[in-house]
């Protein structure tokens, strides 16, 4: 099992957002989590990554044999967790290249691998930047400095490719992207599907799932997974929106099939 979330309750500023979430993700699987605004989709990513201010009130999370909630933010990343942000932060002054090299080598060390030399890293960074269609110049800039929305998302996917994580959480990586940028992001993700790496794709719209085909789709509403199914569930959402959630129509099954 790659990830097992049991009865996760979490709050932000004393407001409970996640209210008993259960999810199991096996190695190699792609899970889509869909839901209306305010359901707690982004909160899930932040809680799993360990962001300060997101208090876990109850529940357990096992990540590849580790007690995830007991680890620091950087330790989770070193253990193979990756979160692609919806709104990546700009850090002028810290060069993108220097940052990625530091990041990749720290994670490699944690995995017991040799850090890359500057020349080795440049080579793989070049290849990755080509893969996500980001000009090499962007590596010399500050982290995300002056990047457009699409360029920031591509920069996230590039980091994902370089870090070779075990589990990737993509937080609305489709938001604000035109169809070409969306394809670049989806191709980047698909290139990393190797049967072992797992993905949690968080999205509001079905659109992204046309390009990244999930094995499972979960509907998150009011801090819980209220419905789980196969890719066809996403099509249902596309057709009927999320209004049915309010009609008490949800056949709320606790937890996810796996």
């Amino acid at each position: 099992m790659m990830l097992t979330i049991k009865d996760l309750q979490a709050s932000v500023e004393d407001k409970t957002i996640l209210k008993g979430l259960n999810l199991t993700v096996n190695a190699g699987e792609v899970h889509a989590i869909m839901g209306p605004n305010g359901a707690g989709k982004s909160t899930l990513g932040y809680v799993l990554s360990g962001r300060e201010g997101y208090e876990v009130e109850q529940g357990k999370v096992d990540f590849d044999g580790h007690d995830l909630l007991d680890m620091e933010v950087d330790e989770r990343a070193q253990a193979g967790l990756f979160l692609a942000f919806q709104y990546p932060v700009e850090i002028p002054g810290v060069s993108n290249m220097e940052f990625m090299k530091e990041s990749v080598n720290t994670v490699r060390k944690a995995r017991g691998e040799e850090p890359y030399t500057a020349a080795e890293f440049l080579k793989i960074a070049k290849a990755a930047s080509q893969q996500v269609n980001l000009p090499l110049d962007f590596l010399k800039r500050g982290v995300n400095e002056g990047f457009s929305g699409g360029e920031k998302k591509r920069n996230e996917i590039m980091q994902m490719i370089l870090l070779e994580p075990k589990l990737c959480i993509l937080d609305e990586s489709d938001s604000g992207l035109d169809i070409d940028a969306l394809k670049v992001v989806a191709d980047g993700v698909n290139s990393q599907r190797d049967g072992k790496r797992s993905f949690i794709v968080v999205t509001h719209y079905q659109r992204l799932l046309d390009f990244i085909e999930p094995d499972f789709v979960h509907i998150l509403a009011d801090g819980k997974i209220v419905k789980s199914g196969g890719p066809e569930l996403a099509k249902e959402v596309e057709a009927s929106g999320y209004a049915w959630l309010d009609n008490g129509d949800a056949t709320a099954t606790q937890g996810a099939t796996a």
Partner: peptide, 30 residues
Amino acid sequence: IAEKELYYLQTRGIPRSQALVMLNFGFIQE
């Protein structure tokens, strides 16, 4: 230092102390 920037670097595996050095220095490196 902005917590958001610190958090971002940490989610990429960089320990807090090292992230602080990068950010503080980045401030003038710019």
